[in-house]
Write a protein that binds this DNA or RNA. Structure first.
Lengths: 239, 239
DNA sequence: CTTGTGGAAATGTCAGACATTTACTAGACT
DNA sequence: AGTCTAGTAAATGTCTGACATTTCCACAAG
C-alpha cells in the first residue's frame, strides 16, 4: 500500500496523525506490512520530518505501529490496538467505514458491560449525576423529531451514556466513556432513524433514567440491556 | 514541589518518563500545580531537551499533564488520568506506595467486571485458552510453597487473570488485561502470603478454571466473585 | 558451511536557532 | 482613576541539518 490513495492534508501533526490512523483503521495496510518511511511521508505531504515523527509517535502509542531503529515501521495486528485510548476513539469517530468486526466487538463489550455499569450507577448516583442524565435525556427528546438534528441527537445520546458511566463513580469505568462516541456515531450513521425506532429508543432510555433515579440496581441492569437490544437491531447485528 | 526529592536517573527518555510519572502518581504534585519547565528538568537530570520532551509527551498522552505554549505545563486531576493506558499500568506496577484511592477504584472495577468476563470466557473459551489458564494455574501452584518465589507467583497470577480476559475473545475486554498487573502487584506487596491464604486463593482460582473448562458461565461468574472476595481480604479492603 | 566484515538504510538523538502563544507590565489617552 | 494598547519576557512548539545507532544484507575469507 502506498500513500497515493490518501487525501491531502492541511494543518499540524494531529491532522496528519488522524489521516494516517484512519487509513490504518480502514485496513489500507495489513498487519505485518511495512509502513512508509518518515522521509517519504514528509515528502508526500510536504511536511517536516518533525511533524511526521510526532504523528507516528501518536500512532505508536496507540498500538497501531511498531517502530525499531534500523528495521523501520511495521503495522501491528488488530489485537494489539489500544481501543481504549481516547485518541483511538477520536480517530474512529470520524471514520465512515469502520471495520464491522470492530463495531461488533465494541457492541459486544457494551452489551456485557453497560448493564453492570447501570447497576452501579443506580447505587452510586448523586443529585448531579441524575441532573446530567435528565439533561441529556431532555436533549435527546427535543432533537428526536427533526431529521436535520440527528447530529445533535447523537451528541445527547453520547452524553446520556457517558453520564451513566460517570454516575458509577468509579475512576476506571469513567474512562470508558470515550469508547461510546464511535459506537454511537456508527449507530447513527447506519440507522435510518425512522420515527418509530427513535421513539422506542427514547422510551428505553427513559427506563434506564427512571431506574437510576430510584436507585433500583436490578431494574437499571435490565433497562440498560433493553436499550442495547434496540441498538443491536439498529446496528444490524440482530434482526 | 521541586525536582530535588527525586532520585537520579540513568538511561533514556523512558526511564525519565517513568520517574516523573511515578512522582506524579505518588502525589508529589497537586492537580493544577505547574510542572517544572523543560529546561529545568533537563538541567536537573543532565539530559537533552529532546529527552525531556519525549518523556513529557508520554505523560501528556497518559492524561497526567496538560501543556500549552506560553503558559507551561500543568498537572491534571485524577479523574482525567488514562488509567487504561498500558503505560500507566507499567508505571503503577513498580510503584510501592500506590494511592489507596486508586487501588480501591481498580479493585471495585475488577469486582464488577471480572465476573462478567469470566462468564464470557466460559462461553467463548477455545482449547488454547484453556491451556493458557491451566499453564498459569500450574505455575501458581508450583510457586505457592516458597517465600522467595513470590515474584514468580505474582507473574503466574497475572497470567491467569490475563488469560481469562483473553478467553472472552473480545477485543475490548482483552485490552484490560493491562490493568491487572498493578492491582495484583499491590496485592502481593501488601499481603503476608501466609500458606493458608495462599491455599485458599489457589482453590478459588481452580474453581474458575474448572467452570470455564466446562463452559458453565454462571459457575464461572460466582467463582470469579469468590476469587475477588479473597483478594479484597488480602488487600485490606474488607476484613 | 560458517564466520566476520563492511556498507546501506532506516529510526533515534542532539544542538541551536527561530516561531508562536501566553501573561504581565508600563504607559498613553480619555 | 480607569482602560485600552503596545511591548516585553517566558514558556512550549517547530524547523533544520548533522550525527548516532541499530538492523539487515551481501560478500568474501577461513
Amino acid at each position: 500500500m502506498t500513500l497515493d490513495a490518501l487525501p491531502p492534508h492541511q494543518g499540524g501533526a494531529e491532522q496528519l496523525a488522524r489521516l494516517l490512523a484512519q487509513a490504518l483503521l480502514a485496513g489500507h495496510w495489513q498487519p505485518g506490512d511495512v509502513f512508509p518511511r518518515e522521509l517519504d511521508i514528509g515528502k508526500h505531504f510536504a511536511v517536516s520530518r518533525n511533524q511526521v515523527r510526532n504523528a507516528l509517535t501518536s500512532l505508536t502509542a496507540a498500538g497501531l505501529l511498531e517502530r525499531t531503529a534500523g528495521r523501520g515501521t511495521l503495522v501491528r495486528e488488530v489485537g494489539d490496538w489500544h481501543l481504549l485510548d481516547p485518541l483511538m476513539s477520536e480517530w474512529m469517530t470520524g471514520l465512515v467505514n469502520l471495520d464491522p468486526q470492530l463495531v461488533r466487538a465494541i457492541y459486544a463489550f457494551r452489551f456485557s458491560a453497560e448493564p453492570v455499569v447501570a447497576g452501579l450507577a443506580a447505587q452510586a448516583a448523586q443529585t448531579e449525576d441524575i441532573e446530567r442524565l435528565e439533561s441529556a435525556y431532555a436533549g435527546m427528546k427535543s432533537s428526536a423529531g427533526s431529521v436535520e438534528a440527528r447530529a445533535e441527537h447523537a451528541e445527547y445520546d453520547v452524553a446520556f451514556h457517558d453520564a451513566t458511566y460517570r454516575a458509577s463513580h468509579n475512576l476506571v469505568w469513567r474512562q470508558m466513556g470515550y469508547l461510546l462516541r464511535p459506537s454511537i456515531m456508527a449507530l447513527i450513521h447506519r440507522s435510518q432513524h425512522r420515527t418509530d425506532t427513535l421513539d422506542d429508543s427514547l422510551a428505553r432510555h427513559r427506563q434506564v433514567l427512571d431506574a437510576i433515579r430510584s436507585h433500583d440496581a436490578s431494574a437499571a441492569e435490565t433497562a440498560a440491556r433493553e436499550v442495547l437490544r434496540r441498538t443491536a437491531i439498529d446496528l444490524g447485528i440482530v434482526s
